[in-house]
Design a protein around this nucleic acid. Structure first.
Lengths: 133, 133
DNA sequence: CATAGTGTACTATTTAGCTATGACAGTGAC
DNA sequence: GTCACTGTCATAGCTAAATAGTACACTATG
């Protein structure tokens, strides 16, 4: 329902990722109506202008569609959604791998660390059937 | 010699990580003298005030020590350096694992993806003998 | 038609980050 | 002492991000 904001990154970008995550995981489905600018602003306690900027960026990336006077909707193109998911996962992966290498970790170290971290953490909000590639 | 700056994150934080990485990987060794405010400002094409802020933060984290009139030096406490390394690696790991789970990936997926990514990438600037835990 | 909800636009203000510039103080070498 | 380096401080200005508030245009409903 709310977001923990990181002060070192623009809010509108963090909300963008928040929405993208909802779309990618199926919380928001293709064609679904999105909360209005004013609704989301109220829910997240953020100024409507900031939400408006968030949505403009999402529309520029063709993730949402705007119907003036009606509202905004998640794109119906599932291929676009999969593309976004791959982008986001790829960005996370690159950041992690490159970061670990910059810290001096060897390839095998990295795999081991991930494997260990994963065995110690429970399968959280696993939604069977929504898991993609 | 230079940094690719991310516009969505304060420069002084990025330079902090840049210095920390050099210390953690041994490029800068315990007790080493660090580039002066003006030197680093010139090298990175950044205003000296911004570098000054970077160093103040690093000193606050007890990673560097200042001797007025002389310059700044990497802390001699190797335990502190190891601590920083663990912090940075842990932050990277958390961000990655949590991010992937938020995207809907299962634990085993995450491990597989990392394993595959790592096999496809060469062992870059591996510095044998500097690899810690 | 009027209404309520939608997206959109505009101006003004505040704040953090960064820059530009100058000045002062401590240290070691000459 | 002088010089050249160091860290430090202070002032001013610019920009992007975010806020606050108002207003306008479009759409469906009744």
């Amino acid at each position: 329902m709310s977001i923990e904001f990181d002060n070192n990154m623009p809010i509108y970008l963090q909300i963008m990722n928040y929405i993208k995550r909802q779309i990618v995981t199926g919380t928001l489905k293709p064609g679904d109506k999105i909360l209005s600018v004013r609704e989301l602003a109220a829910e997240l306690q953020i100024n409507p202008n900031t939400i408006q900027r968030t949505f403009q960026e999402l529309e520029r990336e063709e993730i949402v569609e705007t119907r003036r006077g009606l509202g905004r909707y998640v794109t119906s193109e599932e291929s676009k959604i999969m593309e976004i998911k791959k982008e986001m996962a790829g960005a996370l992966l690159d950041q992690f791998i490159n970061g670990m290498k910059e810290l001096g970790f060897a390839n095998q170290d990295i795999v081991s660390i991930v494997a260990e971290a994963v065995t110690q953490s429970p399968e959280l909000g696993q939604e069977r059937g929504v898991n993609p590639t």
